[in-house]
Structure formats: structure tokens, C-alpha cells
């Protein structure tokens, strides 16, 4: 098997995650889809690391995880406060920017 299949898998997972972001309304699920996309990227990084024979890709994946953790913390905090005020976790409800 050619390890490039890992990259195809990553692309597939990324696309599924992106589609999820577009389709789902629940903010929590939305966040999960974003996590999925980040994970797909991480998989690609790890594969690249193996391909090039150095560890930089893994380091980047590591940093991605850290940043994802930070992002999840803030994002979930936002969802909680949004839920508190609007009693809903639907992103469509927060369409006040519209004219």
C-alpha cells in the first residue's frame, strides 16, 4: 500500500468536516466538525513527516492540537454564554447582523 492513501483519507475527512460545518446548525456539532477538520490536517502533517523523514510535521501537528485546545475552550465558553442568553445553540438564531 502506498502511504499516500493517508493523505487521501485526510482530504476526505477534511471535506466531510467542512460539509458538516455548512450543514449543521447546532453550534456544538459545528465545533466537532471543526475538530474533525483539524484532525484531518494533523493526519496529513504526520504523513508528511514520515514522507520527508523529519519530525517538523509532527511538531506542527502538536502545535495544532494545542491551538485547537485553546480554541475549543473559548468556543465552548461562547456557546455556553450564547445558550444562557438565547436558550438555543443554533447558529442560525444568531443572525442579528442581517439588515
Amino acid at each position: 500500500m502506498n502511504p499516500v492513501n493517508y493523505l487521501y483519507l485526510a482530504a476526505l475527512l477534511f471535506t466531510i468536516g467542512a460539509a458538516g460545518v455548512l450543514i449543521r446548525r447546532n453550534a456544538i456539532v459545528l465545533f466537532m466538525c471543526i475538530e474533525l477538520m483539524l484532525n484531518a490536517c494533523n493526519l496529513a502533517f504526520v504523513t508528511f513527516s514520515r514522507m520527508h523523514g523529519n519530525l517538523d510535521g509532527q511538531i506542527i501537528a502538536f502545535f495544532t492540537m494545542v491551538v485547537a485546545a485553546a480554541e475549543v475552550v473559548v468556543g465552548l465558553a461562547i456557546i455556553v454564554s450564547l445558550f444562557r442568553t438565547r436558550h438555543s445553540a443554533s447558529v442560525d438564531d444568531a443572525s442579528l447582523m442581517k439588515l
Binding site: 460545518v21 455548512l22 447558529v91 442560525d92 444568531a94 443572525s95 447582523m97 442581517k98 439588515l99
Partner: peptide, 17 residues
């Protein structure tokens, strides 16, 4: 063009994607 600005974040996400 304003009609594109419907206020729904997901709609914007489609454009971005």
C-alpha cells in the same frame, strides 16, 4: 448584493469554502 448578506454564519461559511 445585500441579499447575500443574510446574517447566517453558515451561509457565509459556504462562500468562504
Amino acid at each position: 448584493l445585500r441579499k447575500l448578506q443574510n446574517g447566517y454564519a453558515r451561509s457565509y461559511a459556504v462562500s468562504m469554502f
